[in-house]
Design a protein around this nucleic acid. Structure first.
Lengths: 360, 360
DNA sequence: GTGAAAGCGCTAACAC
DNA sequence: GTGTTAGCGCTTTCAC
């Protein structure tokens, strides 16, 4: 038997102290009914006196409910979207007594390891997955699992019991319509310059929407420029935040150069996210581009980094996405069907100071 | 006995399949030695075939190690400092197989509830606490616990087995020396306008350092202005990010008004953090203040929001603080003493475009 | 309303 | 090297 370093006070100690059985202690302390008020008071006093608290682990094992929800993130937990989403999830789930455990997936291996840890055991009561691309095999595997899987901004609902997402494609249509109405004849879409995780899906989805909308608005190929990510550029360990930002700065200046040197120079530019948009804005202005007089720039997210420079952007509310996903998770864990399995959350175009009608 | 919804495949199933005992399966699958290579291969094949994976819960209960570390945060998990610190902790601990579970403390009640959940049970193998003010009773209580407690930017090391922090006071001395050398006769310190959590300590520590340094640099009271936080202003639930930002904007304009209306108008201003500094910078410029020509503004953190406007600031590296704390936690959980229980991490003054010599 | 007892799925002596 | 066995601390039938 295991060495017992400290004599822990267990439910049995409380039972003895209160002069009742362990099951009564369990009932009393969990607030279940069918317990005499007097008995309950006695048990609570005993627990208080002995400073007793439940072992979550033991409760989990006995009850089969882990009271734990995993949140899978495709890259840093400190990115704007991820941290706000997590906050929303945390808020709702922690209130109900759940632990919310983040898992950051940098490589395929991380994902497989995680998936491999799931089946058969009750390590989690639900899994929430954000902004992920999963291949067919992986989605199929999800179907295998018995615990609820909830997606946030996942490109396909397949394999998920519920999901919440924004409509990236519709949002990009709005962006392109705006650029068209402002008089821009030549437009560009800039992906996030450095993409560290292979699972992030917003890039490809938004690009697709952009191209689709551009075509629909009558732009021909010569007037559409696309600047792709350098996927997995930072493959070796970035040693710290500072350094990785440095690499990003280089990427931004590279993008600016591509824009400046383009055959048909775009005057309407959409960037995959606000953080990059802001950096690019600064760089383009440094190079002498007049924004918004000559060039319009639009970001995506509603990241407060854009407030500083009054960036025009497409706003989404990740906290609310997180809350909604957590709500669905709660319903599914209770065994209910959520009101709506797959929800589309709104986005809105926030017109600020980096877009203007082209007067040339 | 509990209702068994799904016949889970357990270690016993694998044992039967492989024709060995459960303990051999346990040893083999955990990679312990004293297992015949052939046996191990057979066990692994059986586990693979049955898609077996360990139940963390059961392992925890039996071994007494939860493989779980709690991280206590005084407010949002999506603030710059918190999310980067968490990232650092996560990085180190997840690599060693630990789950990293965040707990956000909004009110005294949250903290007490958390503390109350700790003793007696082995719910966590260690607790990491960031930027917290704890009162004497709470610190004393920490000493009671048998699991390692590690602090990050905690004002006192009392009650902690290890800690990592920056030297806020020394940093503020640097700031004040800089302002003095730039020729500023009248200076101000601006606390974070809206303080939502009662546990955040950086405000008071930095203010103290500022005042101490100001005195040492020969500033008299009339030339030192302090603009305090509106503590707990957002006590009722902020309904979403947007709204809370709105309240902050109002607070910023209030601060700007206080600066503009001050008897002895300060020309050297230090703001508790970069996020607020950037907002204040924008507001002051809007009001016609020329920064850095007439007024110098310094932030604190090294938050990349400051990059956009080239904010002069005091830089700290929260990812590294997190990593260091996690490293100490690891050592303590192994039963070793960390190389150095209490570490002071460096900060650096980053001179950019919001400070300049006063030429008046 | 309360108690007895059988597990939950695993680990860690200990014996062989 | 491998098997046997006694728990880890709780929950949950079931009987009273």
């Amino acid at each position: 038997m295991p060495g017992q370093q400290t004599a822990r006070t267990t439910i049995a100690d409380v039972a003895k102290e209160a002069g009742v059985s362990v099951s009564t202690v369990s009932r009393a302390l969990r607030g279940l009914d069918k317990v005499n008020p007097d008995t309950r008071a006695r048990v609570e006093a005993a627990a208080e006196k002995l400073r007793f608290t439940f072992s979550k682990t033991a409760s989990s094992l006995a009850s089969g409910k882990s009271m734990r929800v995993a949140v899978l993130l495709p890259n840093e937990i400190n990115s704007w979207f991820n941290s706000y989403t997590f906050e929303g999830v945390y808020e709702v789930l922690s209130r109900e007594g759940y632990d919310v455990v983040p898992y950051v997936m940098w490589e395929e291996r991380d994902l497989n390891r995680f998936f491999h840890t799931l089946p058969g055991t009750q390590n989690f009561d639900a899994v929430i997955v954000t902004s992920f691309i999963l291949d067919a095999a992986q989605r199929e595997f999800l179907d295998t699992l018995t615990i609820p899987m909830i997606g946030i901004n996942v490109p396909s609902t397949e394999g998920f019991d519920a999901s919440v997402r924004i409509d990236d494609v519709a949002a990009m249509h709005g962006v392109v319509r705006l650029l068209r109405s402002l008089g821009h004849e030549s437009i560009a879409y800039v992906e996030q310059p450095v993409q560290l995780s292979p699972f992030v899906c917003s890039d490809s989805v938004r690009l697709e929407g952009f191209l689709d909308a551009a075509e629909q608005q009558g732009y021909d190929e010569e007037h559409i420029l696309t600047i792709p990510s350098l996927t997995r550029a930072g493959s070796e360990d970035d040693d710290d935040a500072q350094e990785s930002v440095g690499g990003e700065a280089a990427a931004i200046s590279d993008i600016a150069a591509q824009l400046v040197g383009a055959t048909s120079q775009p005057t309407g530019i959409c960037v995959e996210n606000d953080r990059c948009a802001v950096m690019l804005l600064k760089e383009l202005r440094r190079l002498g581009w007049r924004i918004p007089e000559e060039v319009s720039l639009i970001g995506f997210d509603g990241d407060n980094v854009g407030d500083v420079v009054d960036l025009t952007t497409v706003r989404q509310n990740p906290v609310q996405l997180g809350r909604a996903a957590a709500g669905k998770a709660l319903a599914l864990m209770r065994g209910d069907e959520p009101d709506e399995a797959h929800t589309v959350a709104p986005t809105s175009l926030l017109m600020r100071a980096t877009t203007a009608r082209l007067t040339a």
